[in-house]
Design a protein around this nucleic acid. Structure first.
Lengths: 205, 205
DNA sequence: ACCTGAACACCGTTCAAGT
DNA sequence: ACCTGAACACCGTTCAAGT
């Protein structure tokens, strides 16, 4: 037993079954210890969740961009961040509930800031661009997380009016969305609007 | 006592204090009735939450676009939807947790589809555009909801490196983001990429 | 310093019993 | 048809008591 082991097991429980599955009694069972022993190590459940999120934030580490142009590199950072978040949906949901999303994003935003600086975007403009792009990433991940759990993807009670003049649209909306395409679409729109072209790109369009 | 009154009071509790504040015992107190009486009317807590969300979905009604061009009208729909969602953050959080966001968005998406049709966007393209825009709206609202509750807006433990070459950026990131500007920025980028200009707009640019 | 067991105040839910 | 009270299995947390 140690504080670290408690946080380890707690993290695993949250990761696999969601925050609600982390009860002090279940945790004590997995640790092979009395419920009350946990309190000596971590204080209480709230502090334990804080510790879990703290570790996640620290683990986010630094993402490295790939590609040559600033647009490619910023895009790659956003995609890698999304991939990393998607791998642990319950944990990022927890981080979100506890208002720790900004902390988690710091490393990527730093990396993006460097790319923006290269193409002459700085100051308030850079801050707005960073935040718009990272907001797109979290927004997408949070939405997907709900879609992953929730019941049927297709609206249950309500139906698109049958008399619609655009049957192809109706059919497209009846199938679950292509989340990768959706994410890429929004990201490209943002990057296109916020990250200037480099000289090389402008020369050969 | 009636099923309607139970759902009324439950809705008020969730709206004001969040879903966690809706306990069967507290609800019974506000209703002036024994806890177990509630079960006769609504089944159980889960079904009660379903009923609350059902009512919200039905209440979303139809939003009317304003403006003349398709871009303006689509933009106005997204802005009005955001305003409506922001007015009841806890309830939309609940709808999100229960995977009912698509249901809630149906009316607006219908209205947007009409606007897109006017400028010749239909079928799969229209479906993708609709979903990209509404994803931006939910994403933004979900993020703001967390920001509203969570502790300090500014990252707690971590700090932007002090040696940064762009002090204006560091300062901009140290102040809470302008959420309206952030939302408008993303929305404009999306609408610009997805909704074609009308003839009139192209003539007088 | 670290762990246990009993105890308390809370949950959601069931069910027999009342009117 | 509608409501009550007792009861059950769960929570998180405190605290005196052990080693």
């Amino acid at each position: 037993m140690s504080r670290d082991r408690v946080v380890d097991v707690a993290t695993r429980l949250v990761e696999e079954h969601g925050p609600d599955a982390l009860t002090m009694r279940r945790l004590s069972q997995e640790l092979g210890v009395a419920v009350t022993a946990i309190y000596w190590h971590v204080g209480n459940r709230d502090a334990l969740l804080d510790a879990v999120v703290d570790r996640l934030v620290a683990d986010m580490g630094t993402l490295r961009p790939s590609g040559s142009s600033a647009r490619e590199r910023v895009t790659s950072l956003a995609e890698k961040l999304r991939a990393r978040l998607q791998a642990r949906p319950h944990l990022i949901g927890l981080a979100h509930e506890r208002g720790r999303i900004p902390d988690m994003f710091l490393p990527v935003e730093q990396a993006m800031a460097a790319e923006l600086a290269r193409v002459g975007v700085s100051g308030k403009d850079a801050a707005l661009a960073l935040r718009a792009i990272s907001a797109h990433v979290v927004g997408a991940v949070l939405l997907e997380r709900a879609a992953g759990r929730g019941g049927p993807e297709i609206p249950t009670g309500l139906v698109w009016p049958a008399d619609a003049s655009d049957p192809e649209l109706v059919e497209a909306l009846a199938t679950p969305p292509d989340r990768d395409a959706l994410f890429a679409l929004g990201l490209n729109a943002l990057v296109g609007a916020l990250v200037p072209l480099e000289d090389a790109e402008r020369a050969v369009p």
